[in-house]
Amino acid sequence: MPLVTKWTGREVKALREAARMSLMEFAEKLGVSDRIVSRWEADGEKSAIRMVNQAALDTLLAKAERDAQGRFVGILAADDVPMHPVIEPGEAETSSGEYVKHPGDGKLMAHVPEGIFLAGAEDDPVWVDEFYIDTFPTTNADYARFCAATRRQPPERWENGRCPRELYDHPVVHVTWRDATAYAEWAGKSLPTAEQWEKAARGTTGRTFPWGNQKTAAKCNVRETGVERTTSVSRYHSGVSPYGVYDMVGNVWEWLATPTTPGRYELRGSAFTSPLFRGFPAVPNDASDMMHDDDTGFRCTATRQQIQSRNR
């Protein structure tokens, strides 16, 4: 469950919108007037919320459905209000769980230090240079901004070219490898190599899954979970990788930069349509660069140099 250290009007508004409540409904749940909620939201981060109301907000968030909790995190992330410490490129070397905000598309990126990790089914030692990787897969909201900026054709399943609002924080699907590459170039990023993606998912010690070696389907959106559709990219908090990266198993397959044969590229991570054993981060899949499906999306990586060049 997401935690809030101190509630302000910004978090209040995010929770109300995530819960799909009107001001009146939300105020009734909290036991306050709708005018108070409206004032909190209007004051934003400057609002002063009493401790008794802070506690009531904690309870309301804890009792919210998982999808609503996921939307809450997604709304805050979309509004550039990260729920984790943020570092800036150029600072001292960082440990796992630390993030930067990319200046191109504004997404949170996790820092992965340089070094050796155990790769593949045989846990072979492989060196990977330092890089940053998107904390969450590219969402429909992210891709909509890209389409608006570049006039690229939106995914075919969007009705009248618009993504339904309730899917804004779900991963974008029905994108080809070429679509994913175009987004990465627009944002000043790259698609991950197979080695980058696997290290971000498994860490350095050869763990089977991002969360460890236990075959626990409840930590991700796979066939055994029974959801049978995409979910919010921030839903599975207990399934994050050692670097704090979400959805490295399940939800959607992710395009990589690594080719297998001419015109075909690696995919990793499995999807809501896949059994858990297909989600081993060490095991690759591949597809034609023109393939698109309802269970295939992507995320991006960036070097320190790429981030710094966009900051200039």
Rank of each mutant, 00 (worst) to 15 (best):
A19Q: 12
N160F: 10
D289K: 10
G188Q: 01
G269P: 03
P103Y: 02
R268V: 04
R207D: 09
T225A: 15
G226Y: 07
M24F: 12
G250R: 01
T231Y: 05
M21F: 11
G74S: 03
W7D: 01
D134G: 01
A187Q: 02
A194K: 06
E156H: 08
S47C: 10
T139K: 02
D169Q: 07
E17R: 11
H170R: 06
T258L: 08
V52T: 13
R157E: 13
M24Y: 13
G226R: 07
T303E: 06
A182Q: 01
A287H: 14
T258D: 06
A257L: 13
S309E: 13
A55G: 10
M290T: 15
V126P: 01
R66H: 12
V283E: 09
W127H: 13
R16C: 05
T176W: 00
R20E: 15
R268Y: 05
R10P: 05
W211K: 05
E93P: 06
N53Q: 14
R268D: 03
D124F: 12
Q196W: 02
S288H: 14
D293A: 15
Q308K: 14
V52H: 13
A182D: 01
E98V: 12
L60F: 10
F146K: 03
E166L: 08
D129K: 11
A287Y: 13
K219H: 12
A19Y: 08
T208R: 08
Q214A: 12
P103Q: 04
A18K: 04
K101R: 15
V222D: 01
T150F: 05
R310D: 06
V173M: 02
G203Y: 09
W186D: 02
R299A: 04
A19M: 15
E224V: 06
K46S: 14
I36Y: 13
G203D: 04
V52Q: 13
G239V: 03
D124P: 03
E114L: 08
C300S: 04
L30V: 10
L167W: 06
E65D: 15
Y132L: 03
N160V: 10
G212A: 02
F280D: 13
Y183A: 00
V73E: 05
A68P: 09
K13Y: 09
L256C: 14
F117G: 00
W7F: 07
D289F: 11
A144M: 07
C147W: 04
E17Y: 11
V233Q: 04
I307Q: 03
V52D: 13
S288C: 15
I133T: 00
